[in-house]
Amino acid sequence: MDLVLLLAEIFTVASAVIVAFHPNILYASVFLLFAFCGVAVMFLFAGADFLAGAQIIIYVGGVTILILFAIMLTQWLYKIKLVDIRNKMLLPGVLALGIGFFLYRALHQMALSLPKLTPEALDKFTATPKTALMGQALLGSYLLPFEAITILLLGALVGAVWLARPE
């Protein structure tokens, strides 16, 4: 089982590398889809079954398809490859490496300061189905953020339709 998780992580990182480096935006967005699938498998192994399903539905089925639609609608991109991103990669590369390293160190330090779970508790957490628990939490202690996010989604939907309206 650990081997599957390791392969999923390698797959995710490799897809993300292609997303960041591929000069053609169309291929980059297709590999973003693969990276999202890898992250969904990682969620599954972290005991987040509901989140893994939501990741597939929202990201793979929604966001990536939306991005592909936008690329198709502005389709001159097929021909023009973004070769200009090769010009200045040193400073962003150093900056990104620094931020990633700092993030890992900081979160690692934080993880060390928090108490560990026992292996039995970990197995129990992974084995518990989360859908009912998350539903109860969303309509219980997280009711206010839940309502706020519904208003945000409605506003985003109306705003997007208004922005993309025909003349």
Binding site: A16, V17, A20, A35, V39, P92, L95, A96, G100, L103
Partner: peptide
Amino acid sequence: AILFALGIF
């Protein structure tokens, strides 16, 4: 962290 760094890049 790797995904974050790649995203920033």
